[in-house]
Simulated assay, not measured.
Amino acid sequence: MQETWRWYGENDPITIEHVRQTGATGVVTALHQIPDGTSWPAEEIAKRKSLIEAAGLQWSVCESIPMEQCVKRGDADAPKAIARWKDTLAKLGRAGIPTVCYNFMPVVDWTRTDLRWRAPRGAGLALRFEMVDFVAYDVFILGRKSAANDYAADIVARAENRVKAMNDDEKLLLERNIIAGLPGGALVQTRASITTLLESFAGIDADTMQSNLLAFLREVVPVAEEYGVHLGLHPDDPPFSLFGLPRVVSTPRDVRTVLAAVDSPHNGITLCTGSYGSRSDNDLVEMATEFAPRINFAHLRNVTVEADGSFFEDDHLDGGTDMVAVIEVLLREERRRATAGDKRAAIPMRPDHGHLLGDDITKNTNPGYSYIGRVKGLGELRGAIRALTRQLDREKASA
């Protein structure tokens, strides 16, 4: 597997030199400085690629080309937005970027209620999604119409008690944590703008959203094929409805629909073990095995899910997913591809998310993307990969 590292560019508090020091050989990045709704200039793509290669690294994955909300709604502006997406995809392909990760989450991207939760076993500060806190925000702070109908009565009652016990600062912090996953993040979003975004999806159900995704794929996969780019659709995070919005990349059934819609190796998935693993009914080993030929990218992280649907980011080899077994599936798939002469034999992976550890706790870092925690995770994954590779070599030698 190719070890990669997510890097947010020159404004990332983690420098490209620090990325090189992790031992990773690939970089996962995007042109975050370019506003949504704009096709990326070829010269800016070339500039970022040159900066990465000057450090002795490869731009392995673009994560992500922004997906405009109109595409998910399938409204009148969607064709122009898809054309911009295709134009950027083609430019990335011409520049030699082999993989593009993207998602199709409406309004909210990744969502957590606590960005600095004290993890068990003295493991530092972790990202956490607390179901009661989220319901408290949706029903009683944001005040979305009919929101209470989307949740079990006991959860709503607990959420109401939670809100009553919160002061104004605590409510504001919860809101900031949740909207960190919204387009533009906490710097520009307000309760009014969130409500407007949510209302723009009124009447769009899961079937409509899925149809819009499949229509998008039929447009963009031929471009990916033409320019040699392999697409990796990222799952919903978390993989269940938020704010009453449909989520259509959450289960094995969803993945089967996506892959069957355009049957091409360029139409693949990003296996995010943490996102899919945030549903206790998703078996990640089974999913990795079933979809192995179409896994174009992997985010390796682990979560522990609680009875009410809450979850937290656990250590990379702990949590609800048998990470070692998932890695073994991916390594076997790489060997199958190599035997078949597939040029994309090495699956790029990155140690997704990491705890805040040591002096990173006091530093300015992107939520989930501290340095020490991800280096720790990468080291754990690297050790598992090395041990499993030796095991597979012995199997081959004795065959």
Rank of each mutant, 00 (worst) to 15 (best):
L356Y: 10
I45R: 04
M1P: 09
L197S: 14
D254G: 03
R162M: 08
A384V: 15
L173P: 10
K343Q: 11
R374Q: 04
R390L: 09
L245R: 06
R121P: 02
R118M: 12
C62I: 03
A54F: 12
Y369G: 13
A83C: 13
H316R: 15
L125R: 11
T22D: 03
R335G: 02
W59A: 02
G56L: 07
A165C: 14
L198P: 13
P239R: 00
L357A: 11
L284V: 10
D393V: 02
E43M: 12
T15Y: 07
F312L: 12
E333T: 00
M209Y: 00
L187Y: 10
R128M: 12
N364P: 08
A346G: 07
G93Q: 14
G143E: 01
G203S: 06
G358N: 08
E290F: 00
L231R: 00
I204S: 03
I385E: 08
G228P: 12
E219G: 06
D308Y: 05
T257P: 00
D109C: 08
E44I: 13
M105H: 09
R344P: 02
A325C: 07
V262P: 04
A152V: 03
E380P: 09
I361A: 04
S278C: 03
N149F: 06
T389N: 07
V28C: 13
D207N: 13
P66E: 06
Y137V: 10
D87V: 10
P183I: 09
S310G: 08
A165H: 02
R176K: 10
N177L: 05
G26K: 01
V305T: 14
S370L: 15
S278E: 01
D281M: 01
K145Y: 03
R158E: 06
R73V: 01
D75G: 09
G93L: 13
A83H: 05
G244P: 06
A30V: 11
D114C: 13
S398T: 15
T208M: 14
N366L: 15
I372E: 05
I204Q: 10
C272F: 01
F311E: 00
G26H: 01
S211K: 00
L198M: 09
N267Y: 03
W40P: 11
R176W: 11
A384K: 07
G122S: 01
V19I: 06
A397F: 10
D237A: 05
P239Q: 00
T339Q: 08
P367E: 02
L300G: 04
E225H: 02
F297M: 06
E306D: 02
I327W: 12
R20F: 01
E160M: 15
R162D: 14
N302W: 02
V262R: 00
D322T: 11
Y102I: 09
I34V: 11
G274W: 03
I347V: 11
P35G: 14
N149H: 05
A261R: 00
V135D: 03
D77M: 13
I204Y: 07
